[in-house]
Each structure stands twice: as C-alpha cells, then as structure tokens.
Amino acid sequence: MLLTGLGAAFFYLFAFVAIASAVMVISARNPVHSVLYLILTFFNAAALFILTGAEFLGMILLVVYIGAVAVLFLFVVMMLDVDFASMKRGALDYAPIGAMVGIVLASELLIVLGAQFIGVGQPGSVASPTPDPLVRTNTAALGDIIYTDYVFFFQIAGLVLLVAMIGAIVLTLRPTRPGVKRQNMGQQVARKVEDSIEIVEVETGKGL
C-alpha cells in the first residue's frame, strides 16, 4: 500500500523529524538537549504508529516512553554529575567508518532481499489481516485476546518483570549500610510537641 495525499505528507513530516531528532540525540553537546531530542523522536514515532492505525501502540509509547522512561533519563542526566561531554568526545570521529560499515551491510541485505521486498510477486502470507480501524479499534482488538489467547505470554512477561525487580533489589539494596535515614512511622506519630519544640526566652541584646 503506497501512501498518497495528506497521509503521505504527514508520514514524511513525522519520519523526517524523527530521523533528524535521532541524529541530534547523539550529536547534541548538552546532555539535557539530547534527552529532549530523544523525547521528540519518541513523539514522532508515536505519531507514525497512530498514522498506521495502531493507536494503542502509539499511546503506550507516549505514556511509557515519554511519560516515564524519558523523564527518568532527564532526571538521571540532571542529577548525576556525569561528564557526558568527555564521554562522547570523539564518538563522532568514528562516524565515517561506522557509516561505511552500515552502508556495506545495508547494500548486501538489499542485494539479497531487495528483489523480494520490492517485487510485486511476493505472496500475501498474512495470517490474520488487520481489521478496518473504523469497524474494530486496535485497542479493542488487543483487549479481546491479551487476557484470553495470549494469557500465557502475558503471564511470562509478568514473571520477567518480577525477576527484573528482584534482580535490581538483590544487586543494589544494602540494608545494613551505615548512615541511611529511614522513615519510622511509629516514631513520627508518637512525637509530641514538647519533644520537638523548645521555647527559649531570649533577652534583648544578648542573643543565644
């Protein structure tokens, strides 16, 4: 299916901005700018998803990647004193060689696969074609199967996340580290005014 008219115009707009901002992510000097460009890239990718009728994926991309992941990145970049500039120095020096390797690989893939991707004779081996978004929305279609036919995969995904959580705790939590301030709610609630406030009569001109 070739895009025409307004659809094509929007596709090229979003695709161009996505690629341009992706380039800016790795070339911007200021790491905060890099993260902001990353958000722009995600945003355009989400727009591309919506353009193809996958509104659920587009929205998830917005909520998860922009709402959580990118903001987390921004916090990390702003709060940690990492000298990204020196880490990235020289990274672009490898760009010519990287680009060359990329072009060689891409052209090899194109030579082998090109005829099949571009050729019109490719048999349509689509197991279940996407329903018309106007008849059945993407979100509803996903909702039909994710807890029924795909419950097995859904549960394994849950277990993978559980392992990730346990792993993060095992590798980083040190309950016995000295000097860690912990919240003790019992103590907080049991505090009285006389324990925490001391009223001192200060004589004029003397100070404490």
Partner: peptide
C-alpha cells in the same frame, strides 16, 4: 513468541545470579 519470552525469563535470572 513463548520461546523468546521463556529465554528472557531464564537469561535475566542468570545475569543476576552471575553477579
């Protein structure tokens, strides 16, 4: 699909166990 997800479940646990 189940092959890949099961593999990730196993691998992720193994990475943590190695460290």
């Amino acid at each position: 699909l189940s092959l890949y997800m099961a593999l990730e479940l196993q691998s992720l646990a193994l990475y943590v166990i190695a460290a």
